[in-house]
Write a protein that binds this DNA or RNA. Sequence first.
DNA 1: TTTAGGG
DNA 2: CCCTAAA
Length: 653
Amino acid sequence: MVLQKRLDYGFSGFQVPAVPRSTRSARGRRLFKRKVEDRQMCAFELLATVAGDLLQERDNCAHSNASLGIAGPVIAQDTVKQEPHDKEALLKLEPCDPGSCDESVFVSDGALQGHNGNCTSKASTHVSYVEGFEIASNSDFSAKVSCVERTTKDGNQKVNLSCKVSVSACNESSSKDKFSHGIEQQLASDEQKMVNGTAQDTCSSEYVIDLDNKPPALVSSDSSAEVPFSGDHIPCSYFPKSWDNVQLVTKDDDENSSECTQPSTRTMNAFRSLSRIGDRRIRKILASKYWKVAPRLKDRELSNSETRRVFHNRKGCYTRQRSQRNSPYMRRKLFKCCSTSTCDGGLSSEDISKSLVKGVNGDEAASVSQASSSIAGQEASFQSRCSHVKLSIKSFRVPELFIDVSEMETVGSLKRAVLEALTAILGGGVHVGVVLQGKKVRDDNKTLLQTGISHHDKLDTLGFTLEPTPTPTPTSTPPAICHEDSPHLVPREIRNSSSSDKGSLQPPLGDGSVDITTTDSRALVPIPPRVEPLTVAPLQRKSRQSELVQRRMRRPFSVSEVEALVQAVEKLGTGRWRDVKLCAFDNAKHRTYVDLKDKWKTLVHTARISPQQRRGEPVPQELLDRVLAAHAYWTQQQVKVQLKQQSEQYFLI
DNA sequence: TTTAGGG
DNA sequence: CCCTAAA
């Protein structure tokens, strides 16, 4: 018995807005976080939808004779091992290696046919960009989500977005005749934005079922639920690759950056309206890294509150949409679910790599950057009835990332810029490394110029690695993640800024700024797949929040900074840190008044301990003496003021 | 938002 | 550096 199903989805990777590095205000951070979350949501919604379909498919295979009705997935991160008799399908989303992928799997229109498997060679085809995610699993089951973008000879752009699912049941894993299809969208490059806005018109989706030529009656009898096997054309949830048109450029103030979110908002609205079309197929969607569903929840309210907590301070329509459209399904699901495992977990990015290449095109060069990342280790688990499916999102692509860093900035600040942009999406737990000419750049304090990352040099040897920050808690690695044949480290061709980039904003190129454009993506430091501990206690909100905002890069104070600080404190005293900041560190965006206060604290401490105990760059004793003197003086002043106030109070009494 | 202080 | 109570 072989069952085949075709799904069509649009999947557009993330476009990472460059974090306004100077945005230190709470509001700025909130805005940015929300911006990122929105995007994250889109992608995860899509993936969750895909996953839901997969699970559905799988269930209908596995229990084709059971009267289970519709039992869809509960998406949750779960490492809980189930009873041995439970059928457990392990899904895996991993990047498709375009060099080795079977293009017939991806492309339906023959554009890539006969191309010897190399989807990205521009020489023989006009395909400019291929991206895919493979959802592979045990022998029952396999699926691929892919995106193929190519440019036709007349300059138009076509995008194929598809998700292919192949399911075989009853141990018959011979579903070699995989089905493939793609949504093709004809995009005139000049009007791409507009076309994308009305993408639903061109969107079509279809299920093809071949289950021993017999429709699965059990499902279609349940009319109140989604009926994926109805054979009807079911609208897909599709959103176009229009994020590529949204260029977010680093701006130093929130106002400007919020202006940049305009196109993004438009896109999101487009998506929302689109996704409504496919509502009934989106059964359970949990986005963000806080995929969480407590299977024990017994009613909609709880379920809603759960959702709300996930998307706490956001009023977006996600919450409403989800609650409404999912709750009927969820209720049923929850009652039926025999599992009691409550799962939660963070997103762990295992391996993100990208290379950046400087755009050297002169004045009118599209100083747009692209970055591609492959992130491994996001894992969600789907529970359905007694079956448990683990889905691990092995990779997704971050198509656009603009970084504008001065040559005089340090390597550390570059790392930080990248880190902020990416970890905001990944949710932290990652560490950025800079690789130049294959070698890791370890000295964070050197400037980019000193390191050789220069405006004048080709930056194609510059790369970044993202590694998971080591977690002390050892966890067993779910077997699904440990596929040795993961092709996700193979270089992937990313098209250079082409038509879709023309409409993007031109980032201002200040003096000495480095314009970094990613044209290539390759993992420079392969990281063996590993999974973050997922058995996080359900109510650890604190750690979640800290995951969202990445810890700032450590930036030790230089002697000159200490000097400036000491001088300012001598003048202004302790306790006026805002003034100190304005007086002496107004230009240092990365030093907040809290930082200065903290530094003074450590300076006082340093001055009091013996020189042998001191660490880091030695501070001249003369400065430390001044620290002690100033500290003594101003604390005395404070005491005086306090005494005076006290006496005034007594006087009043 | 800023200060102050603990972690 | 982070977090946060308190002002």
